[in-house]
Design a protein around this nucleic acid. Structure first.
Lengths: 236, 236
DNA sequence: GTCTATAACTGGATAGAC
DNA sequence: GTCTATCCAGTTATAGAC
């Protein structure tokens, strides 16, 4: 198609076309993001199967046909929601991990390792705002679901988890991998329950704790799982 | 209606009617259970909103109309699935808790308290078989969901959780309640992730761990969270 | 790019026969 | 109690106009 343009268009038309194409591409991006914002919000509050394309389109202020135009089908929208956030989050987490590994050398601590693994998640959610909170809820629900949940989590988060387990291994070389993975399993459960922000602990604690209080949860996770690691760690 | 029967029916007809009524009631119970079995299995594998009444009816070998006859609507089926298991499970857990409280006296340990809280769940799932495993998956997904999840969990499990927190309080009287509830929050996350049996840890660990290996998970939960409690506990 | 219109289908629910 | 038949609302998806 670009060949055709090159042949038929005059230089000035070409320039105009290029400018309009840029504007179009920005517009495209904006529309796409509006749809994903709406979808993300709805998925977070009603679950993957509790949301219709109509509802997404209506919430975004467009027609269903447009959603099909951009994302083909509902599965496509769901994947796009994941892609948009996960690519950003993974970049942040990997960068944090890189600098920690570079600086920490052999002086690893369990607190430090948990911190480098967990803090970027919580800080991203809290600092970057609304949409991220919704995404966190989606990730939490996805991780606890049997229907495709594990597959999506694997796809997006396997590498960073492997790096984390690698650090645990360096921290406690005599602990069998199997035990490290069980520890990881428990940690991952506590993490996703926290990200899901279901409000259950709010009721249960009579208001003493709020599941929206993510930075406090981060703090308690590091404290409890640091202490918990002593059950896993090989004797020094 | 029983008045009418009493007036119009002869004694022998009355007796036959009573026998047939018993048979009917058993049949009723059986049909109802077949429907719930099918529903439970489907809910566990596709989620609450991923299942249609048609699919439930078909899997149970009946027509949709019959499902409506027994449970009114889909919500009714879902609630019935919960009721059937939760009533049994709560009875078991409370009984275990009763005898522990009676016997342990003041000699509480964190291992003991975690054991009494967790073991009945895992043993029930493992010993009582198939349907219970499906129910566990449903409970796991429900606990991590924002849409009505917290409410259902509260409704069924609040009392037993309160008893558990009460034991933690006796174990560590100077720890602020707020901290005990945060500990509970993390524990609950690890628990429901385990019950959900998503298979993620299987892939992640390259087969070293299996999420179906519930008794091993129980063991690791007690070990890790016992050690973890030292971060929460008031100094002795 | 975005919308209108519509086709084709799915799912929930009920009336009524047996 | 259980099924047949059917209705109706809601949903996905696409063709085609602008």
């Amino acid at each position: 198609m670009s060949d055709v343009t090159a042949i038929t268009a005059s230089p000035s038309a070409k320039k105009a076309s290029r400018r309009s194409r840029r504007a179009q591409s920005e517009r495209r991006e904006e529309t796409s993001n509006l749809i994903l914002d709406a979808a993300e919000h709805l998925f977070a509050h009603h679950g993957r199967d509790g949301v219709t394309l109509r509802a997404i389109a209506a919430a975004a202020g467009f027609d269903t046909a447009l959603v099909h135009y951009y994302f083909t089908d509902k599965e496509g929208v769901f994947r796009a929601v994941w892609n948009r956030r996960a690519s950003v989050l993974n970049a942040i987490r990997n960068a944090t991990m890189d600098s920690y590994e570079a600086e920490a050398g052999e002086a690893l601590t369990i607190e430090g390792v948990l911190d480098v693994f967990l803090r970027p998640i919580f800080e991203t959610m809290v600092n970057l705002g609304d949409g991220w909170i919704d995404f966190a809820a989606i990730a939490g629900a996805t991780n606890a679901s049997r229907y495709g949940g594990a597959q999506i989590m694997d796809e997006y988060f396997d590498p960073i988890v492997e790096r984390f387990v690698g650090l645990l291994r360096r921290l406690s070389p005599d602990t069998p991998d199997r035990e490290l993975y069980w520890y990881m399993h428990l940690l991952s459960g506590a993490l996703t329950q926290s990200l899901a922000q279901t409000g259950r602990i709010d009721t249960l604690s009579g208001g003493l704790c709020r599941s929206s209080d993510l930075m406090t949860i981060l703090d308690r996770m590091i404290a409890t799982f640091s202490a918990g690691f002593s059950a896993v760690r090989s004797p020094i």
